[in-house]
Every structure is written in C-alpha cells, then in structure tokens.
C-alpha cells in the first residue's frame, strides 16, 4: 500500500512540474531562462533586471533634492550618479546609463530653480517621456503619517484611463518598469507593504504612496506626493522623433508672463478709464441756456 501511495504522489508531482514549466514557456517565450520550478511556487531568482539611473541636474532646489532622496529609499533598484550639468546635453545621459549598466533613466532637472521637469527614458532604444513635475511634497512632511519598509516592493495601482489612449498606455508601461521594484531584487524586502497610486485627473498623473495597514481598509499615506504632467513623448532616448505632444500643456514661463501681462492690463485699464471719464466730462452748462433770460426783468 505504502509503495502505491508514493508512486501516485510522484506521478502527480511530475505532472505539476510539467505544467509549471509549460506555463513559464508560454508567458515568457525565449527571453527567460528555463528554471526548475517547484510546484506551486515560482523560482526564487532575480530575473527582472531593471536598473534605474536616478540623476538630477545641477541647480535643483531643496524640494527636488528631497524628493529624489525619498525615491531612492523607496526604489532599491536605482543607482544614483553625481549631479548632471545641463551644458553637456541630454545625450550624455545615455552614455552614463550605459556605463552604469542601467536600462532606465530617471532624470530630474530644474529651470530657473523653480520649474521642475522629469524625464523617464528606456535605454537604449527609447521611448522617453518628458513630464513637468508639479505639487511636490516630500515624505518628511508631518501630515503624512504612514511608514513602510525601506526597499519593500510596492503594488502599482492605475486608473483604467491609462488603457484608454496609446500615449497613456506607453506611460503606464514605463511607470511599471521604472517605479516597480523587481521580484527577488537583492536589496529589496520580501514583503509588499505599500501601494504606489497613479491616477489620471485633469490630464495629469497624480502620484501617491500609501501604506497597507493591518486591516484591509486602513491606508496611511507615506509620501512623497507629486503630479506628473506629460509634455512630450520621444521615440529615442532623450531625443528622436516626437510621438506625442500635450496640447493642453502650458509652459510655466508662459503662464508667468501671462499673469504679469494681466496685472499690467489692470493698471492700464484703470488709467484709461479715468482719462475717458475726464474726456467725457463737459465743462459749463449741460443744457442750452438762454443768455437773454436774465437781461430783462420785470
């Protein structure tokens, strides 16, 4: 009897392993190595080798710097480099990424120390996306009460609006690969204890990070917070043909100029109004008076 049971067990086991192998073949195709997987479990091997180069340009403000350090703590698969000088041209970033053996680049730059821009690019064939980075809040703010493990993997939550149009789809895929921590990454923790929340509102991507609490519905925000406003999508890395341009995007410089103009209009308007008022004023009589009225008196 005992032998029989063993045999049956072995048979079922072998069947299971075969199934798993087949599944892996189906899903991964040729790219992935064939691994001897135990039944019911995936192989404990680091296969998704995403490496992200996390760089900022020179002359970023404290806020951007803090956001970057926050992201560094949350994303263990990043490598950082010294601040990049914008003089050299963005193409040089590709070389740095190649030297650092990175296949994604996360580059933050700032113009005039106030307008932040974020580049995400896939090496070496692109695409790359340029966002404007708005409404930044760091993880250190006291109103953000959550906490998570350093280097734990996040769930990536998306709106279904990300699947509605091709440019959103592309951005979603890029976000998954850049922001998601690979399974079994040596620097990562083996738990999923926070959610990175991406939602499209007002044609922008709002990014939030929540801690998954003990109960199902208790989420506490960990931070950082920011908004990504896509400007352009390029075919190559940091250049190439433009695939998408955001028609609703207005550059912050233009916005500021318009605001100034509006302010100046206000002054000009006021002066003109006063003058026109003066010009419309009539001096003397407002009706045809008879000059002889007072001459003859009874």
């Amino acid at each position: 009897m005992a032998k029989l049971v063993e045999k049956i067990n072995k048979k079922s086991l072998s069947k299971k392993t075969k199934k798993v192998k087949k599944q892996i073949k189906k899903t991964n195709g040729e790219k992935v190595e064939k691994v001897d997987a135990k039944p019911g479990k995936l192989a404990k091997k680091w296969r998704n080798k995403q490496r992200v180069l996390l760089v900022s340009s020179r002359g970023v403000s404290y806020l951007a710097r803090h956001i970057l350090t926050n992201l560094k703590t949350l994303m263990p698969h990043t490598r950082s480099d010294s601040k990049f000088s914008r003089k050299h041209g963005l193409q040089e970033l590709n070389e740095i990424a190649e030297i650092r053996n990175c296949n994604k680049v996360f580059y933050l730059e700032m113009h005039k120390r106030q307008d932040a821009f974020l580049w995400m690019s896939a090496q070496p064939h692109g695409p790359s996306v340029k966002f404007s980075l708005e409404n930044m809040h760091t993880m250190e703010e006291l109103k953000l009460t959550g906490n998570c493990l350093k280097g734990s993997r996040p769930l990536l939550a998306f709106n279904d609006e990300f699947d509605s149009e091709p440019h959103w789809k592309l951005i979603k895929e890029l976000l998954i690969q850049v922001m998601g921590t690979p399974y079994h990454h040596p620097k990562s923790q083996p738990f999923v204890d926070h959610v990175l929340n991406f939602s499209i509102l007002d044609n922008k991507i709002w990014v939030r990070n929540f801690q998954i609490g003990e109960e199902l519905n208790s989420l506490a925000e960990v931070g950082p917070r920011f908004v990504l406003n896509p400007i352009k999508i390029f075919d190559g890395c940091f250049g190439g043909a433009v695939l998408y341009e955001n028609p609703k995007y207005v550059a912050p410089v233009v916005n500021r100029r318009l605001a100034k103009e509006r302010a100046s209009f206000k002054y000009n308007n006021r002066i003109a109004q006063k003058l026109s008022m003066e010009s419309r004023k009539t001096d003397g009589d407002t009706f045809m008076a008879d000059p002889t009225q007072d001459v003859f008196k009874v």
Binding site: R47, N48, R153, P154, L155, L156, A157, F158, N159, D160, E161, F162, D163, K172, I176, G180, P182, Y183, V192, S199, I200
Partner: peptide, 9 residues
C-alpha cells in the same frame, strides 16, 4: 514581477 493593478475610474 510587475505587480500592476488597474482599477476602473
């Protein structure tokens, strides 16, 4: 490996 989830808006 991806851990992405899409939620209807």
């Amino acid at each position: 490996e991806r851990l992405d989830i899409t939620v209807p808006k």
